[in-house]
């Protein structure tokens, strides 16, 4: 083991490490790869080449069909509206609340944190029935607005903690310097702190968008018609229909995957960083 010469032991260890990494990458990506593969397999080859790693012919016929002859464009649009609005509203609310938790010590802070932690602990399934009962007389069932309200509330606590950990990473000195330089407290927040929290804001946006994009239970419960259905509900109702068309479903799945994965790849570095800051803090 002396020096850095490649002894036999080191080579074996290095090889094992790379192989293990490769196995993980393969395990993580294979299902997604398969989704893509089936979605571009033409119908006539779907069964005859069912377990080939790549079809002998590819086509976009399923995508074409899903976009032109199904209701998926509506689902897609609904999901985009719901997830996008939820992400924007949650990030705005969580920035304000996270800033308060990070920068002020005030009476009741402990209870606010306790309340937010509590919301992370109890089973959300418990809320399915009461929320349905509450929203129904307000006309907010079967409506995208109702979904946005519910998703916003569900995501605010975690987003607040995430934003708080980003604010905690910005030295208090900067705000004080700005206030001495002539800024008001809100001016310092807007001109100095917010621009520095952009990575945090991006991470929170992405995280909440993905969560709202993926939510299934409440969407199933609160939405009944196709007009207001989100992607998960649409896809699921598609599955339970009689004639299962795998190619079309997977094409729709690929489309459902794209926004979430794009967001994730853009922000994963910041997300890991934010979680790390939170984790280190305990």
């Amino acid at each position: 083991m002396a020096g850095h010469s490649l002894t036999k032991g080191r080579v074996v260890a290095l090889l094992a490490h790379r192989l293990a990494i490769l196995a993980y990458v393969a395990f993580a990506l294979f299902p997604l790869y398969w989704l893509l593969k089936v979605s571009v397999t033409p119908n006539k080859l779907l069964y005859s080449e069912g377990i080939r790693m790549w079809p002998s012919q590819t086509s976009f016929e399923h995508f074409d069909f899903v976009l032109k002859h199904s209701e998926f464009p509506t689902f897609f649009k609904n999901s985009l509206i719901v997830a996008g609005s939820t992400a924007l509203i949650v990030t705005a609310l969580a920035s304000l609340a996270g800033y308060a938790l990070s920068r002020f010590s005030f009476r009741g802070k402990y209870w606010i944190v306790a309340l937010m932690l509590l919301t992370q602990m109890f089973p959300l399934v418990m809320l399915v029935a009461p929320i349905f009962k509450m929203l129904s007389p307000l006309g907010l069932t079967n409506s995208l607005t109702g979904l946005v309200i519910v998703y916003t509330a569900f995501n605010v606590p975690f987003a607040t903690f995430l934003m708080q950990s980003f604010f905690d990473g910005i030295p208090k000195d900067l705000e004080e310097a700005a206030m001495i330089d002539g800024a008001t407290q809100f001016g310092a927040f807007r001109q100095i702190i917010l621009p520095l929290t952009l990575p945090g804001i991006a991470a929170t946006l992405g995280f909440v968008f993905t969560a709202a994009w993926s939510e299934l239970l409440f969407s199933l419960m609160l939405i009944s018609g196709n007009a207001a259905a989100t992607f998960p509900v649409g896809l699921l109702s598609f599955v339970s229909k009689f004639s299962i068309d795998f190619g079309q479903m997977m094409a729709a799945g690929v489309m459902a995957l794209i926004p979430a994965c794009l967001f994730f790849l853009l922000i994963q570095r910041y997300l890991v960083q934010g979680l790390t800051a939170g984790a280190v803090k305990g």
Binding site: P171, D173, E176, A177, M179, I180, D181, L196
Partner: peptide, 20 residues
């Protein structure tokens, strides 16, 4: 008075320069 209305300047230990 708020800090901004006191007309004083301050140099911080950390310098507190605006990174952006």
């Amino acid at each position: 008075l708020a800090p901004k209305d006191r007309d004083i300047a301050m140099v911080f230990q950390s310098y507190a320069l605006y990174p952006h």
